[in-house]
Measured scan of single mutants.
Amino acid sequence: MAAGGDHGSPDSYRSPLASRYASPEMCFVFSDRYKFRTWRQLWLWLAEAEQTLGLPITDEQIQEMKSNLENIDFKMAAEEEKRLRHDVMAHVHTFGHCCPKAAGIIHLGATSCYVGDNTDLIILRNALDLLLPKLARVISRLADFAKERASLPTLGFTHFQPAQLTTVGKRCCLWIQDLCMDLQNLKRVRDDLRFRGVKGTTGTQASFLQLFEGDDHKVEQLDKMVTEKAGFKRAFIITGQTYTRKVDIEVLSVLASLGASVHKICTDIRLLANLKEMEEPFEKQQIGSSAMPYKRNPMRSERCCSLARHLMTLVMDPLQTASVQWFERTLDDSANRRICLAEAFLTADTILNTLQNISEGLVVYPKVIERRIRQELPFMATENIIMAMVKAGGSRQDCHEKIRVLSQQAASVVKQEGGDNDLIERIQVDAYFSPIHSQLDHLLDPSSFTGRASQQVQRFLEEEVYPLLKPYESVMKVKAELCL
């Protein structure tokens, strides 16, 4: 049975990233139509530049190519590739079939990587351009969430054990800070992308030097003109047959890092959902379990974690691919890159769409948070109580021993009897502590235990987050809708 299948058929496997999760716009960027249309555009740009620099290419040939950029006979191309065992030459023939007058000058002087690699770089750039505003929107939604809850005390956790208090907004800023680093890295790697350009079979530009009869300047002009037509500021000066596969490492490393950030955020949300302090959106008709109707599973956060793990592992592909590119190139890269580049971007696209949807509907339960604080705060307040007693004339050592005994009794009630923490009640009825009984409410005010959390939130948002989001103001209103 021949390899390949009808990918629109229910009898043929289709990647869930495309069929179930990723956005239509990201799927289109990695589609065959987008790819092969870009090949034709690159052939047109090459012909236009070659004509401008004096090669015998007519206006009629150029116009014929322009008129057929979208006229792609995919069936013919597939048949040609089956016959020739070469995808680029299959599309040269297919393009030439609908451009008979231009057929002889299509791909003039070029090698397969002229269309293959340059198209990949265009796709990487455009895919990054799709991700950047999506990530900015996630940051914006979380920034709104953090600002609104900047002063809401909550129990902090280290080692997932109760620690000092923080605020809900401050905790959210930990998430935002990681995503801001990801946004900066995505922008950097996007701006650092260079075009492969017009380089020939081993990167020496020998074929173009021959076409222009040894004119170095025209060869350099050709490279520059096509690079500018493709919208790049610069091209690699040095290439082998391909652009260095280190570029793929750079791009997928940034995406993998984004995956790590999203995994951490969504894990926190899942843990908070278990504590009943916070939940992701839950639709009115949504079913959490087929057997347990009360369940409210954090399905979206779980999906993000599941896909983020996949995204983090994909960076190993370009690392290994770059390491086995012998001399000017081997074909070890080809099949692998067809999979890992598309999957990385479709996965990143999915987790950003999902995280935006989550961040637009996060639900906080202040009463649950308050109750958990009441359970733990008495123990945390013991040092403040000791200091207040010393100020009232008591002995630190005597007070410490009193607190120690009462704390152990209260802990026994919590752990052995399943009761509430009654340390404060014990202190309130103990005559030894009568000098500070009137101060206990103040000493137990949760806001006095959150330090500068709310001020940190305000400063972080104003100095770091809002300036970073400013270039994306025009796209901030787009909502994230999930079908599944």
Rank of each mutant, 00 (worst) to 15 (best):
Ala18Lys: 15
Arg125Gly: 14
Ala2Thr: 11
Asp73Tyr: 02
Ala163Arg: 02
Ala136Trp: 00
Ala308Gly: 14
Gln455Ala: 00
Phe433Ala: 06
Lys82Ala: 13
Gly5Pro: 15
Val465Phe: 04
Ala308Glu: 10
Val414Asn: 15
Leu186His: 08
Cys340Tyr: 15
Ile57Ser: 03
Glu250Phe: 12
Arg338Val: 01
Pro162Asn: 04
Leu155Glu: 07
Glu343Cys: 06
His310Glu: 05
Thr450Val: 08
Arg194Ile: 00
Ala291Gly: 09
Met76Ser: 06
Glu81Leu: 02
Gly116Cys: 07
Asp445Ile: 00
Ala410Arg: 15
Leu44Ala: 13
Asp422Ala: 14
Cys304Asp: 02
Met278Val: 11
Leu377Gly: 11
Cys113His: 01
Ser290Ala: 13
Lys284His: 03
His91Ile: 08
Ser261Arg: 14
Thr58Trp: 12
Gln356Ala: 09
Pro435Cys: 15
Cys27Glu: 02
Thr119Pro: 05
His7Gly: 14
Thr119Gln: 02
Pro56Leu: 12
Ala22Lys: 12
Ser151Gln: 11
His97Asp: 10
Ala388Asp: 06
Ala146Tyr: 11
Val138Ser: 07
Ser31Lys: 05
Glu360Gly: 01
Phe95Ala: 04
Asp398Leu: 10
Asp6Val: 13
Lys229Ala: 12
Lys264Thr: 12
Glu64Asp: 04
Asp215Cys: 06
Ala103Gln: 01
Glu250Gln: 05
Leu272Tyr: 12
Ala102Asn: 06
Gln356Pro: 07
Phe74Tyr: 07
Arg404Ala: 04
Asp117Ala: 04
Leu461Trp: 08
Gln177Ala: 09
Val92Gln: 01
Pro378Gln: 14
Ser253Asp: 07
Ala47Ile: 15
His93Tyr: 04
Thr58Glu: 08
Thr111Gln: 09
Met292Glu: 10
Arg245Val: 08
Glu280Val: 03
Val92His: 00
Ser140Tyr: 00
Tyr34Cys: 11
Val475Arg: 10
Ser395Leu: 03
Met389Gln: 11
Thr450Trp: 15
Thr347Arg: 13
Met380Gln: 15
Leu131Glu: 14
Arg194Trp: 10
Thr382Tyr: 15
Asn353Glu: 01
Glu79Trp: 08
Leu128Tyr: 08
Leu423Val: 04
Thr267Gly: 07
Glu64His: 03
Val475Ile: 02
Ser334Asn: 14
Thr267Cys: 01
Glu60Asp: 09
Ile62Met: 12
Asp441Lys: 06
Leu314Lys: 07
